[in-house]
Measured scan of single mutants.
Amino acid sequence: YKIYPYDSLIVTNSISVKLPKDVDRTRLERHLSPEEFQEVFGMSIEEFDRLALWKRNDLKKKALLF
């Protein structure tokens, strides 16, 4: 996945969300650098992957990456 800054990946309720063209809309968190991922989620990507799907989705919603 290509890395993008968190600010360019957050999704708000506005209709005209302009995400970069090559971003996987269903896995926005994968486009964060490991350092920024840790900062946003408070855990590593590996720890995040071990969580239940509902928990990952809940965290993504709170981080505006859903």
Rank of each mutant, 00 (worst) to 15 (best):
S14P: 14
T12K: 10
A63L: 06
F37H: 03
N57S: 07
V17E: 15
L51D: 02
L9M: 04
S14Y: 04
D7Y: 14
V17P: 13
R27N: 14
M43S: 03
Q38H: 14
N13K: 09
K60N: 01
S33R: 05
M43P: 00
E39T: 14
F41G: 00
P5R: 05
Y6H: 02
P34D: 10
M43V: 04
T26W: 10
S8A: 14
R27I: 05
L65H: 01
V11D: 06
E29T: 01
S44F: 09
A52D: 13
L28T: 03
K62L: 09
F66L: 10
K18M: 12
R30K: 09
A63C: 05
T12M: 15
A52M: 08
L53D: 09
L19M: 08
V17D: 15
W54C: 11
L51Y: 05
I45A: 08
M43L: 07
L32Y: 00
D49W: 06
K62A: 12
D24W: 05
L9S: 00
P20N: 05
S14I: 11
G42K: 14
L32R: 00
A52H: 11
I10Y: 04
L53M: 12
I10E: 02
D7C: 15
F48Y: 06
S33Q: 04
N57K: 08
Y1C: 10
I3F: 07
K2V: 12
S16T: 12
K62E: 09
R30D: 02
K60G: 01
L9D: 01
H31C: 02
E36I: 06
H31S: 03
F48V: 00
S33G: 07
E47H: 09
S14N: 14
R56I: 05
Q38Y: 14
S44L: 11
H31F: 04
M43R: 05
K21M: 13
N57H: 08
L64I: 04
S8W: 14
I15W: 06
E47A: 12
P34R: 13
W54V: 10
Y6F: 03
L51R: 03
S14H: 13
K55D: 09
P5L: 04
V40Y: 06
L64C: 13
L32W: 01
L32D: 00
L65Q: 01
I3Q: 08
P5G: 05
R30N: 04
Y1G: 07
K2N: 12
A52C: 12
M43C: 07
W54M: 08
I15C: 15
N13D: 14
E35M: 11
E46M: 12
S16D: 15
D58V: 12
L53I: 10
D58F: 13
F41E: 00
W54T: 11
E39C: 12
I10P: 00
L32P: 00
L53H: 10
L9G: 00
S8N: 08
D22E: 08
F37N: 00
S33P: 03
L59R: 03
D24V: 07
Q38L: 14
R50K: 14
I45Y: 07
L65F: 03
N13A: 12
L9H: 01
T26E: 14
L59F: 05
K55P: 03
S44H: 11
E39P: 03
D7A: 15
D58R: 11
K61S: 07
S44Y: 08
A52L: 08
P5K: 05
E46Y: 11
P20K: 04
S16H: 14
M43K: 03
I15D: 15
E36L: 03
D24C: 12
I45F: 10
R30H: 04
Y1V: 14
L51K: 05
S44K: 13
V17N: 15
N13C: 14
S33W: 03
L19R: 05
E47W: 07
Y6P: 01
W54R: 10
P20S: 04
D7R: 14
K2Q: 12
G42L: 11
K18D: 15
N57W: 07
A63T: 06
A52T: 13
F48G: 00
D49V: 05
E46D: 13
E47S: 10
K55E: 14
L65C: 02
R50F: 08
F37R: 00
R30C: 06
S16Y: 10
V11L: 13
D24N: 07
K2C: 07
E35S: 10
L9N: 00
L19D: 05
E36Y: 02
P34I: 14
D22V: 04
Y1K: 09
Y6Q: 01
R50L: 14
S8Q: 15
T26Q: 13
E46F: 11
Y4W: 06
R50C: 11
L9T: 00
N57C: 09
I3A: 05
K60D: 00
F41K: 00
L53R: 09
M43Y: 04
L19Q: 06
L19I: 08
E47P: 03
E29R: 01
F37I: 02
L64A: 08
D22Y: 05
K18L: 12
A63M: 07
W54I: 08
R27W: 03
G42W: 06
F37K: 00
E29N: 01
S44E: 10
A52E: 13
R25C: 11
S44A: 13
K61H: 07
K60A: 02
D24M: 06
F48D: 00
E35K: 14
L59G: 01
P20A: 05
K21T: 13
P5Q: 05
L59K: 05
V23A: 06
A52Q: 10
D7K: 15
L28Q: 01
F66C: 11
V17R: 12
R56L: 02
Q38I: 11
E39F: 14
K62C: 08
E46Q: 12
R56N: 01
Y6R: 03
R25H: 11
